[in-house]
Each structure stands twice: as C-alpha cells, then as structure tokens.
Design a protein around this nucleic acid. Structure first.
Length: 424
RNA sequence: GGAGACGUCGCAUAGUCUGGUCUAGUGCGCAUCCCUGCUAAGGAUGUGAAGGGGCAACCCUUCCGUGGGUUCAAAUCCCACCGUCUCCGCCA
C-alpha cells in the first residue's frame, strides 16, 4: 500500500510509476476521488456522532418530564448516525479496494517496460565451451538421474506433475547448499529463522501476493490459510503490527523454509526436471531498514547473493528488472541468473526486491522516531534454493556424467570432490 | 476432544456483578521542570495508536483480544471467534 498523503500531494509520481509498469494511470485518479469521498462522509459521520454522544449523555440528567422528548431526539439521531456510519464505511471500503490495487511506486532508474526490457548490469564468469571440451553437455535431469539424485517419475506418481524426490547425493546436495547459505547469512549478521509455511490471509495480503498473482498461491479453504511461496511472507509478518527500534541498524533475518507455488499459467514451461516445481526449499534474506537506508541495503543483499554464487562457482549475470515485471510490492528488483548450458540461456537463481515502505504500511510495521512513528522499509533476497542444483549439475559436469563439486561446497559434503554416477 | 479461568492505555492493576459522573482511575517505568549542597528524598507537569478538521492554539471520531448484536447510551449485557493458562482424555 502506498502512502495516501503523499499520493494526494503529488499524484504525478504515481501516474508515472503506473505508466512505467504498463499499468493504468487512471487508477491513481480513482483512488484520489474515492479518498475525497471518504473524507467527506467520514466528517459527516463524526460530526453527527459527536452530537449524538452529547444528547445521549443528557438523557441520564434529564428530569422525568423532559426525558421522553430527549429520548425521542436521541433515538432519531441514532438512526441518522447509523446511516452516516454505513456510508462512511462503504466509502472506506471502496477506497481500500482501489488502494490495494495500486502497486508500489517504482524507483528512479528502473527500466520501463515489460519482461524483456530488463537491463543487464554485469556479467560475471565465463560459460564453459563444451564444444572445445569435446562433448555435449547433459541436462540436469539426465545428470541427476544417473547420479541417483533426482527422481521426477516417482514425484509424479505420488504427488503429480512438477513434484520430485531428491535422493542420496541429491538430498545431500540440497542440504549442503542451504547450510552454506545459512552460514553465509550468519556470518553477515542475519538471525537464522525457521518459519511457518502456513499463514493467515491478512499476512499473505500484506506482503502483496494476493493481488494480480493470487492464482499462484495455494489456499487451504477448510482453515483459511495460505501456503507461502517464500519465507519472505512469514518474515514480513514476523514484526507485523509492531513498532521497531532500528537505531542500532537494520533487523536482518535469514529464513529457511519450504516454498509452495501453484505455477498456474505456466503450463508447458520448464516442464522437465526441477527447474519449475510446486515445492522447493529456500534460504531467504529479509531486512527491516529505515526508508532512507533501503537503497544501500538492496545493494548489500545483492552483494551477499553474488558471494553465494561465487561460492558455488557459477557464471551468471545480474539484471535490473523492468518495471512491468516487478511484483506488486517491489519498487526495484535485481535478479542473478546463472548460465544454463543445455538451454543456452540464463536462468534466475536469485531475486532481491526493495519493497520500500509498501509491505510495512500494509502490515503495520513501524519505527519510532523523534517526529513520530513511520513505516519502515522491507527488502528480501534469495541466498539459495533447490533450483541451484540445476545450474550446479549442468555447469560442473564432466564428460563421463560425473559432476565436479565446487570447492565452496565440499566442506558441506564431507570433503567430496566429485559426484559419481550410480548408473550408466 | 471435554471442563474451567482469564484477555483493560509500555509493565502491573482498578473498573465488568448493579450500562450513563470512564473525558478509563491508581502504582511503576519514562520525559521535562522545580526544590534541595550533593551517588538520597520530595514536588509539579506530561506520558498510547489510527483517522479527520484547522494557518495555528486546538478540536473531533475510533480503539478496553477480534468481529457482530442489544440499547438513546457498552470496558460493563448477549453471541461467535482468536489467544493464554489449568485440569482431564487421547497421542507422539
């Protein structure tokens, strides 16, 4: 949710933001109109209510002779107030409805346009030349099956398409990755957290995932709970309705959780292997910072992501996501994409978003300052996910189907240097 | 799953039976000031949140776990839900 007061003062910023996202700038004016309506009806209600309270109070003091007249007056007022309140509530609901449709304001410098209008900030590392090495790389599923690491057939048998088992070295590899990520986070001063993965509607809505992309989220109607698509949700909700003290610097949490995504609307996309799945694990960084520190924190989160990519020795690029491809809550987003040899394309491995005060305002997360309480800024970023296994297997494979273990991970795999196939 | 108790302004607590003077009292804590010749004691004032109006001083509305209801009027009465605790049952 964006700030109504600043929207009133300077609606052009919001209109420009909407245009950059390829969204409708008209929505801004609808919000402003609804706000005006709401304030008018609210004032009317409050004035009537104040009068009613006065009259009501005088009932007790009235003499027996006056009482019937006063009571009648009070009764009439009560009717009016009830109607006025209903009108004011309706106007408030309409404003809320419109306001929650408005996504966060994009920051200056974010490229305008849609999914393909990203800007490449840098490219790090060099993809291997498999032609020069004299063999055709196998894809991650072939490699994973030969290593006895990935079993998508049984995943489909038990749970359906886009489910999988990680077995043997596959399971160990995921634990190694996530443990490495947790260690990195710990070293950077994050508090490790294992989060709930089922959350209440208000938390899911507060993080902005029930807007346009509500279809992506699993919902359990019997209990009215949502399965999180990332621990960002639970970590954003962690301090909901709290007033924080950020005088000692940002509050940083590293969440470890399973993540669930319906992948609605991605039929036929990335159907092979474990690139796009309904359930995976992730270590996620989450920061609560003062609004003026958000941009610097965003750079720091990106830095820690790149350090993780360096640890597993993958070639990647960093992109500045275009406005139209930002989530509802994000004001800016950087993705790190690793090179995927068999598809000759880059694959998103991490994503870090600066949500400015958007989530905090919805969730009621504030900090106390001299000038009063104000919403904080929230940011998130990926440190590792199950998907990283895809890039690690493909980029570090050898001609015989074995896989070289990047040095940074060996300590988490009992010193193992090579993953050996268990079948041809 | 069954039975019961409880949920009040940072913390503690009064108020709920018997609806109106609750504009929610008191203590602690905190802040500012005063007094005091001293690592003490005392005194005064202030002390939450959200929203609205006003150039401003300031005023108004809402909030007593949440949401409904009864009533001219609800912290107080009724209903549902949530949470905490105790006991019993069941089970890891």
């Amino acid at each position: 949710m964006i700030d109504l007061k600043s929207l009133r003062e300077d609606p052009d910023v919001a209109r420009a933001s909407q245009r950059a996202r390829g969204a409708d700038p008209e929505l801004v004016d609808q919000v402003l109109a609804a706000d005006e309506q709401r304030r008018a009806l609210l004032s009317a209600f409050e004035n009537q209510r104040a009068e009613q309270k006065q009259v009501s109070k005088s009932v007790g003091k009235a003499s027996p002779e006056e009482r019937p007249a006063v009571l009648a007056h009070a009764k009439a007022l009560a009717e009016q107030v009830k109607a006025a309140e209903a009108d004011a509530n309706e106007a408030q609901a309409e404003l809320d409805r419109l306001l929650t449709q408005l996504p966060n304001l994009v920051l200056d410098g974010v490229p305008a346009g849609g999914e393909d209008d990203y800007v490449v900030l840098r490219t790090v590392g060099t993809p291997r030349d498999f032609t020069a090495e004299g063999f055709t790389p196998a894809d991650h599923l072939d490699l994973g099956q030969r290593l006895g690491a990935i079993d998508t057939d049984r995943g489909a048998k038990v749970s359906g398409a886009r489910f999988y088992y990680l077995t043997g070295i596959g399971a160990r590899l995921e634990l190694a990755l996530l443990n490495a990520a947790m260690d990195k986070a710990l070293a950077a001063g994050f508090t490790p957290v294992i989060t709930p993965t089922l959350v209440k509607p208000e938390i899911m809505a507060g993080t902005g995932f029930l807007g346009e992309h509500a279809e992506e989220v699993y919902h359990l109607p019997t209990d009215d709970l949502y399965l999180v698509g990332t621990s960002e949700v639970a970590l954003a909700g962690y301090h909901a309705k709290e007033i924080l003290d950020l005088s000692d610097g940002p509050k940083r949490y590293a969440g470890w959780s399973a993540c669930y995504r319906r992948e609605a609307g991605s039929y036929g996309k990335d159907t092979r292997g474990i690139i796009r799945v309904h359930q995976f694990h992730k270590v996620e960084m989450f920061s609560y910072v003062r609004p003026e520190d958000a941009t610097a924190e965003h750079e720091r989160l990106l830095g820690w992501e790149e350090a993780m990519l360096a640890l597993v020795d993958l070639p990647y690029r960093v992109i500045d996501t275009a406005a139209g491809d930002l989530g509802t809550s994000a004001a800016r987003k950087f993705d790190c994409e690793a090179w995927l040899p068999t598809q000759e394309r880059y694959l998103e491995l991490t994503s870090t978003s600066n949500c400015t005060t958007f989530q905090a305002r919805r969730l009621g997360i504030r900090e106390r300052t001299e000038a009063g309480n104000r919403p904080v800024a929230t940011l998130n970023g990926t440190l590792a996910t199950t998907r990283w296994i895809v890039a690690i297997l493909e980029n570090h494979q050898l001609a015989d189907g074995s896989v070289h273990v990047p040095e940074g991970l060996r300590g988490y795999l009992g010193g193992l240097e090579t993953l050996e196939p268990v079948r041809p």
